[in-house]
């Protein structure tokens, strides 16, 4: 059995992958749900077009970052044709690693900007 890959080996994460993983961070979702959430979260800036979305989902499944969920929502909200996806343990760790990387990056940018502003003042 080959050892599972380390989360770091996926970094930096492709933007689409990041968005999909982020959408699944707090709950299970079906494909359309992921699409709507990403659209909403980014204020309409990022639209995952359907074919791209499913290409990404397949890739994430192949890499074992997400899996199909066997729990279904309440019967009245359930559409039998829909599949629900959730993060795997690896997927959660990859998402965490990417988030940390992005936070570090943002911190770096802020620090740089702060220095530049101070430099402009003096």
């Amino acid at each position: 059995m080959p050892r599972p890959p380390s989360p770091e080996s996926f970094l930096p994460l492709k933007p689409h992958w990041f968005h999909v993983l982020l959408s699944l961070a707090d709950r299970e979702q079906h494909g359309y749900g992921i699409m709507l959430e990403v659209l909403e979260r980014t204020g309409g800036k990022v639209r995952l077009w359907p074919a791209t979305l499913y290409g990404t989902l397949k890739r994430l499944m192949d890499e074992d970052l997400i899996e199909e969920s066997d729990e279904r929502p309440a019967p009245e909200a359930d559409d039998a044709r829909r599949r629900y996806y959730r993060l795997t343990r690896l997927g959660r760790r990859v998402l965490a690693a990417e988030s940390t990387r992005l936070e570090d990056l943002v911190r770096l940018i802020r620090a740089k900007r702060g220095m530049a502003e101070r430099g402009a003042e003096s």
Partner: peptide, 17 residues
């Protein structure tokens, strides 16, 4: 393989969107 796994869903999502 792709069609088997995601074909129906893809079309369904598109129909909605």
């Amino acid at each position: 393989e792709f069609k088997n796994a995601y074909g129906d869903e893809l079309v369904q999502v598109t129909e909605e969107a």
